[in-house]
Amino acid sequence: MFELFSTMTALLRRDLTLSARLGGGGLLAVIFFIIVVSMVPFGVGPEGALLSKIAAGMIWVGVVLSMLLSLDRLFQADFEDGTLDLLMLSSLPKGALVLVKCTAHWLTTGLPLIVASPILAILLQLPDGLLGPLLVGLLVGTPAMSLIGAIGASLTVGLRRGGLLLSLLVLPLQVPVLIFGVAAAKSEALWSPSHMLLAAVTLMTLVVSPLASGAALKLNMT
């Protein structure tokens, strides 16, 4: 048990270091997030009433797209330099490997996006009472997006042009997260039934994703 924990932390520490050294992949996602959501007023017009109505939805869509950006590197980088071979041969169970990878992805991509979302809430004039519920919803829901993303990333690892296919596989599966996330933001309570549904989806993906991604990695490596 202790050994498992120490191998998992070794991998997590390496992933976080790599992400920090590479000029912060997370920072790029944040910048993309801000730019893409800033495009919305150009698309729908600057009317405050309309913007504040769609603000929560647009922020969630922005988060979904920004988290998708870095997903294709989730396993691909390790696949290309042979690291994944050796990870598969290590004592780390495949499910644990997936969990560590998702944790690293969430910490380097999901969390910075959540931190940045109040800025966008201001830009899109999100109604005052909704920022808290939105942030809680993002905290509960974004892990599910990393986990669902891992399924797509593990299925497409090693494929040329896997990134595009990855989006195709992952986006439909993220519909429930988006629906419950936006509903949670509009619930005006820090913990509403929508938040609970969102948490249920996250818990479900916490079970499904390590199983499915682990199996997908195994079949793609062998």
Partner: peptide, 19 residues
């Protein structure tokens, strides 16, 4: 070689040793 370009030689080995 499973060498990460942004890690130093020692860090690369530290990771595998930890694993």
């Amino acid at each position: 070689d499973a060498v990460k370009p942004s890690l130093t030689v020692r860090e690369n080995l530290d990771f595998w040793a930890g694993l």
